[in-house]
Design a protein around this nucleic acid. Structure first.
Length: 503
RNA sequence: GCUCCCAUCGUCUAGCGGUCAGGACGGGACCCUUUCAAGGUCCAGACAGGGGUUCGACUCCCCUUGGGAGCACCA
């Protein structure tokens, strides 16, 4: 901790920022990282973080999405001050429940001639695009229905399906500002008359977000930079409606390791999948925040520290590549930082579902607590836990095949190995007290008696007792496993080796 | 095709006209060590290219190149 804290929000007005996902699936890292930053900005400035569901596309709606979106935020520890589930002073927070607001805005736009009814059919529009492509002209609505006199349009509207389009000025330029990129200027001639109200009377994103962000008094519109190209449209809408424009903050996207779009293969898993994969919320939160944004040389930062120090204007502009290995490393850091009691609770929950069914439930908590310190600094994700320590719960483990033992120093020396293990078993029976310290002491002196290197003997013991070549610290493990079981396993191993050596 | 955005080690980044271009992940070496980790020390590794501006450019401007996004009755 450098002590060189940020401004702590002093001097910054409380911001109202929103996370506005559409319920079309589970949020992925790129998407949720925007939420992390928005949340941080809200907390940093002492403002509000709002969740709004953008479900204006009835066709794409996916059942259960909202729950999973909220669940993802919750898991990450992003709490919201207003939202679909808890309401708030600017509700409702679901766009499909705000239709009258959009219709009212459309009426105003129609009245001011900033919008008009369009009766073009899908076929006509397709044909138009076809023509544009053939003539190598940029695609876009050419304004055919703009020429229809309002009275005629009103009349036809009574019986004909239609949409409402925004009438973009033919000339001039629209100047927008992005907090991170500054001035962004676009020729109006490159903008077409976009749809603001669909024929099903639902608004498009363009209209809905403008109406809602104004109504909800959003100060900062934070979203992915795929929205930059349509920002001028939004500015035009804000202006036409007489609304003050919010501060736009377009954040760059997250790229896949090889470059290109992030896909399932590359870690674009949903947030909830990270939980399943054994990642800690704080680690993912920290990591997400740090990719695409930085604070000096700091990397591992607590939630509070991040809130204190986060400055939204310092978000990086270049698209970042998702570095799965760094996430995993960071997760390891967080696991090591976690108090043992907490960690053992997490581990217990894992074991509860991952241990073989024949292990009695609930899983022995005292045992988990004893084992946790042994593996805390050896794991990077909770998913590694079970395979590492399941032997503590297996009352019977078949001795590994003799080849496991007879390597390196013990190659072709089955009978030596067998007798060494027998000596170890005998010593194990006698050690008092049966604790790691005395155990190690005894085994080391046994090494001298046997004239073998400690590592060589310990490997034999390790394989016999834990069933594997890699394990948590040997003597601590033996202490936990217990004298009886250790001796049994040692003798079993010894016997199996003796069998091999016998002619 | 048109419009827009971006550009420092392999990756995430610090830098905000004068630095030996710093840190982290990953990689390598060594130390520690009962395995595996963790920890410690050290090493390799970057300003995409070309023009300007300036006494002086990683830093400011332009072009090129490269990457990305958008051009729907999807968001």
């Amino acid at each position: 901790m450098t002590g060189s804290a940020g401004t702590g929000g002093a001097g910054e007005r409380p911001a109202r920022v929103r996370y506005a996902p559409s319920p079309t699936g589970d949020p992925h890292v790129g998407n949720i990282r925007t939420a992390v930053w928005a949340w941080l900005h809200a907390r940093h400035t002492g403002g509000q973080f709002i969740v709004r569901i953008e479900d204006t596309d009835q066709a794409r709606k996916i059942e259960g999405s909202v729950e999973r979106i909220l669940g993802s935020l919750e898991w990450l520890g992003l709490d919201w001050d207003e939202g679909p589930d808890i309401g708030g002073p600017f509700g409702p927070y679901v766009q499909s429940e705000r239709l009258p607001l959009y219709h009212e805005a459309v009426e105003r736009l129609l009245a001011s001639r900033d919008a008009y009814r369009c009766f073009c059919t899908a076929e006509e529009l397709d044909a138009m695009r076809e023509r544009q492509r053939a003539e190598k002209r940029p695609p876009g609505y050419e304004g055919k229905c703009r020429a229809i006199p309002p009275t005629e349009a009103e009349e036809r509207a009574k019986s004909e399906p239609h949409v409402i389009r925004f009438a973009v000025p033919d000339e001039g330029t629209t100047v927008c500002h992005d907090l991170l990129r500054g001035r962004i200027e676009v020729e109006n001639s490159t903008l077409d008359d976009f749809v603001i109200l669909k024929s099903d009377r639902y608004p498009t994103y363009h209209l809905a977000h403008v109406v809602d962000d104004h109504a909800m008094e959003i100060t900062h519109v934070t979203r992915g930079d795929e929205w930059i190209p349509s920002m001028p449209r939004h500015c035009l809408l804000f202006d036409a409606l007489g609304y003050e424009r919010p501060i736009f903050v377009h954040t760059s996207i997250i790229l896949a390791p090889g470059g290109g779009k992030l896909s399932k293969r590359h870690g674009a898993k949903s947030m909830l999948e990270y939980a399943e994969d054994g990642y800690l919320p704080d680690a993912v939160f920290n990591f997400l925040c740090i990719t695409g944004w930085g604070y000096g040389d700091e990397t591992v930062m607590s939630r509070q520290q991040l809130i204190d120090v986060f400055e939204i204007e310092n978000i990086g502009l270049n698209p970042a590549t998702f570095d799965m290995e760094k996430l995993t490393w960071m997760n390891g850091v967080y696991i090591r930082q976690t108090p043992v009691e907490e960690l053992s609770e997490m581990i217990a929950r894992r074991l509860e579902v991952e241990l073989p069914p024949d292990v009695p439930r609930p899983v022995d908590r005292a045992l988990v607590e004893a084992v946790t310190p042994l593996i805390q600094e050896r794991i990077q994700t909770l998913a590694e836990v079970t395979p590492l320590i399941d032997f503590f719960w297996q009352s019977e483990i078949a001795p590994p095949p003799p080849e496991e033992f007879l390597q390196k120093r013990w190659k072709d020396r089955a009978s030596d190995a067998a007798s060494a293990l027998e000596r170890v078993a005998a010593a194990t029976e006698e050690v008092e007290p049966f604790e790691a310290g005395p155990l190690e002491e005894r085994m080391r002196s046994l090494c001298e008696e046997l004239e073998v290197k400690a590592g060589d003997l310990f490997t034999l013991i390790r394989i016999a007792v834990t069933g594997r070549r890699v394990s948590p610290p040997l003597f601590e493990s033996m202490e936990i496993v217990g004298r009886g079981v250790c001796v049994d396993r040692l003798r079993a191993a010894s016997a199996s080796l003796a069998a091999v050596s016998a002619p």
